[in-house]
Simulated assay, not measured.
Amino acid sequence: MYDRILVPTDGSDCAAVAIEHALELARRYEAEVHVLFVVDVRMGGQGNWAVDADNVFEAIREHGESVVEGVAEKVREADVPVTTTVVTGTPATEICDYADEERCDLVVMGTHGRSGLSRYLLGSVAERVVRQSDAPVMTVRAES
């Protein structure tokens, strides 16, 4: 049923819960796991620190490399094939584009479960991916 499972991660506890679900599905269906970290371009170029945007993006990219490698190590320990990628862009768009380009059968991602005003103010990458993705999306709510 699933050959390629995409797990976008930001290194949060919320994403870690989703990784566990993706890993279980990958073992069950003998699928490959794709781990993706998106350096969010919306974070740079504003305020006084705009001059240091290149340094900030490089630091975030290095963090992303560390995050995906940590997840990949866990996936390899489970004897599941894994691919890691770090890209720069708008998270929901990059996640959907990656899923399309790599022909992923499923996207598994965490959600904080925010509602009401906090979701409106903070936005929800998971919600945007659910609405925009051609692949099925499994959202996993962070444990309380």
Rank of each mutant, 00 (worst) to 15 (best):
A15P: 12
M109Y: 10
D40K: 00
D79A: 14
D10F: 11
D10G: 14
D100F: 02
D54E: 15
I5N: 02
P8Y: 02
S66P: 11
V33L: 15
N48I: 07
G113N: 08
A22N: 07
C104K: 04
S12N: 09
D97M: 07
P136T: 13
S144P: 15
S118L: 14
V71R: 00
S144Q: 10
D97Q: 11
T88L: 01
P8K: 08
G47D: 08
V125R: 02
E73H: 15
E24F: 02
A26L: 03
L23Q: 05
R27K: 11
F57Y: 05
A22E: 00
G44E: 03
V80A: 05
E127T: 01
S12G: 08
T111K: 08
F37L: 01
Y98N: 09
G110I: 03
D105S: 04
T85K: 15
D79L: 01
E143C: 05
A50I: 00
E73R: 14
V75T: 04
R119V: 01
T139I: 13
R27H: 03
P81A: 13
G70T: 08
D10Q: 12
A50H: 08
M43H: 13
V107G: 10
M109F: 12
T90A: 11
D40S: 07
V137P: 09
L23N: 03
V87C: 12
T139E: 06
H34A: 10
R28Q: 14
R61I: 12
V125H: 06
T111P: 06
D54H: 11
G113C: 05
E94Y: 10
L25D: 00
R4Y: 13
A50P: 02
H63K: 12
E127A: 00
T84K: 02
E65G: 11
D134S: 15
T139K: 03
E77M: 02
E143H: 11
C96T: 15
A78T: 02
V68S: 11
E20Q: 15
L121A: 13
I60G: 04
H34W: 10
D100W: 06
S133E: 01
V108H: 07
V67S: 13
D105P: 04
V87M: 15
G11K: 04
R128S: 12
M1F: 13
S133K: 05
E32G: 10
V68C: 11
L106K: 01
V68A: 09
E65I: 08
A142L: 10
E101R: 11
C14R: 07
N48D: 09
L122N: 01
L25S: 03
V67H: 14
M138P: 05
R4P: 03
V71N: 02
G89P: 00
H112Y: 13
V86T: 09
L106M: 11
H112F: 11
L122F: 14
W49G: 00
R128E: 13
Y2H: 12
D134F: 14
P91R: 00
L121Q: 06
L122E: 05
V107T: 14
P91M: 03
V108K: 03
G64L: 07
P136V: 08
L25I: 08
C96M: 02
R27P: 00
A99M: 08
A99S: 13
